[in-house]
Each structure stands twice: as structure tokens, then as C-alpha cells.
Computed example of a mutant assay.
Amino acid sequence: MSRIVYVNGAYLPEAEATISVFDRGFLFADAVYEVTTVLGGKLIDFHAHMARLDRSLSELDLTAPASHDDLLAIHRELVTRNGVDEGLIYMQVTRGAADRDFLFPAKVTPPSLVLFTQAMALRDKPAARTGIRVASVPDLRWGRRDIKTVQLLYPSMAKMEAVRQGADDAWLVEDGVVTEGTSNNAHIVTAGGTLITRNLSHAILHGITRAAVLRLAADSGLTIEERPFTLDEAKAAREAFVTSASSFVMPVISIDGMAIGDGTPGPVAQRLREIYIEEADRTAI
């Protein structure tokens, strides 16, 4: 059965959904996006996603397409119309349609707003039980990774390279230190039990799941250091994991073919995944 998607004010079967060939999101990747998790038919961390959306829009001088209340209503309507129990809602905002020009349009154009759902199992992901393998790949992205733009070609290329190397995903490395995964934030747990993750800056995306997991880790008594860590530190770690809206907390069991710890999902990652899901169930709207 065809999904119902939202395009600029209309709910449409996906086969009927269209957008202008002059849309700047298509021509220049002049757009930002958010992905919100659906669990039990409810939205996880919705208000945090809206706050990050506002920041991305502001950084690119983009016009907000609707109020937070209106966006919440659209999200909920798509969940209902598509019968989504577990999955994701993708939302993209572009600068709108204008004749092709590197300069922003002199006249403010209405932003384009597109949303669609993706049903998938999240609570019981097989990979969460087995862990994933990552390969290190040079980080060649642009410098403003803190803005959640649709410029995702290089992360896609890096993920493909990781798969070619027999891994599941890539960790991006710049100046000898790990920035993040292709679509997630990277974390390690040292031999002494300290959780280390890259500090917020222009170098990484300010992950919504990252923030929630760090808060829960602190509440659980874990020592946390937000700082860059090297690839060698990661390979010597007791545990490693990634966080994202689609994977929650996902254990990493090897990097560049080298086993992390004993090569199985570690207890810290497993426990953080459990309490994250418990918190998500409790606070979803």
C-alpha cells in the first residue's frame, strides 16, 4: 500500500508527490532536515528536534515553514495515516523554488516542506544484540557539520567504502581523531570505565540521541569526558558504541577489523540502550 506523504500543505500518495525542479534543495542542497523516531506510535524527543531545526534554519538564514505546533500536528497525522507503530519521520525544509543562481533569491521565496514516514523495527534490532563493525575513513565533509543539512553524499560514499571493506559503517577521522559516524555520534568506554565522546563544535552534529544518552549516563553514575579521542584510543577501548535516532545505542564490536574489548556488545552500551528505551517510552508524545 502506498505511503501518504506531506508536501507543501497537502497529504498525498507518494506516487503523486512532486516538488519543483527549481527547488534549491534539489539544485544546491540548500536545505536542512530532521528525523524523529516513532515508538509505540508516539514521537521521541520531538521538542529537542524542533529546537535543533530552529538552530539549523537560523544558521542558514532559512525561513521556518510552520510553527512547532503545526509541525507536531503534521507528524502525528502522518503516523495515523500510515499506521506507523515503530519507525521514523523524515522532515526536510528547503529555501524553496527560484531560478538557478548561487546567490540566495533576492525575493524571499516560500520554503518547501516535505515529510514522509519509514516503518522499521527499532526496539528489537538484531544488530543491537550482535553489535556492528566499523571501518575508519578520512573525514572530507564541509566544515559546518553542526548544521543538519541534506549534504549527505560524502557520508553515503564513506558508508559504501566501509561496506566494501567488510564493515557495517564508517567512523570518520580528521587530524588523527574520530569526528563521528556517517549518520551517528561515536562513543568509547575506557578500561577505567569513563565514557568519552567528542565535544560539541562545528566538527560534529549535535545529536539529539547523544544528548539524551549522556544525560542518562550521568544519572547512572558514569564518568563522562566530552573531548576528541584518537582512532588508537578507540581501538584500545573496553567498549565502543554509536547513538542516533534510528539506532538508539548501538554497540560497536570492531574497528578496522580489530576487536573492541572481547568482540561482543559491552555491558555499558547494553544498559544505556535499555534505559534509553525505557525513558523514550515514558516521555514520548
Rank of each mutant, 00 (worst) to 15 (best):
E86F: 04
D99T: 11
F102R: 11
P105L: 03
D99F: 12
V108E: 12
P105W: 06
I89F: 03
D85R: 14
F104M: 13
D85I: 12
A98Q: 01
R100I: 11
L103Q: 12
A98I: 04
A106I: 11
Y90K: 15
Q92N: 08
R81A: 07
G96Q: 06
D99W: 11
V108W: 00
G96E: 07
K107M: 11
R95K: 09
T94S: 15
R81H: 02
V79Q: 02
R81W: 01
L88C: 11
A97C: 07
V93C: 08
L103A: 14
V84H: 03
L103C: 06
E86G: 11
F104L: 15
A98C: 08
L78A: 07
R76I: 01
D101T: 04
E86P: 09
T94C: 07
G96R: 03
V93K: 09
R76W: 00
G87A: 00
Q92P: 02
K107I: 14
R76K: 14
I89V: 14
G96W: 05
A98M: 02
T94I: 07
Q92L: 10
V108Q: 14
G96F: 06
E86R: 06
M91E: 12
L78V: 01
F104V: 10
M91P: 00
V79P: 02
V84D: 04
R100M: 10
L88A: 12
L88I: 08
I89W: 00
L88D: 08
V79A: 07
A97Q: 04
Y90N: 09
V108T: 15
A98S: 15
G83A: 09
G87R: 02
F102D: 13
F104P: 06
A106C: 03
L78S: 04
R100W: 09
F104D: 12
G87Y: 06
D99H: 13
N82F: 10
G87N: 02
I89T: 02
G87W: 07
E77K: 01
G83Q: 06
M91S: 11
T80L: 11
I89L: 04
D101C: 10
L103K: 11
N82R: 10
R76F: 01
P105H: 06
Y90P: 02
F104W: 12
R81V: 10
A97P: 07
M91H: 04
T80K: 13
Q92K: 09
L103P: 00
G96Y: 04
F102A: 09
Q92F: 07
V108R: 13
R76Q: 15
K107L: 11
K107F: 10
V79S: 02
D99G: 12
Y90V: 11
F102T: 12
F104K: 13
N82P: 13
G83R: 07
P105T: 00
R76P: 01
L78R: 00
A106E: 15
A98E: 01
G83K: 05
D101L: 12
E77T: 05
K107V: 15
V84T: 13
A106T: 15
D101P: 04
D85V: 14
V93F: 03
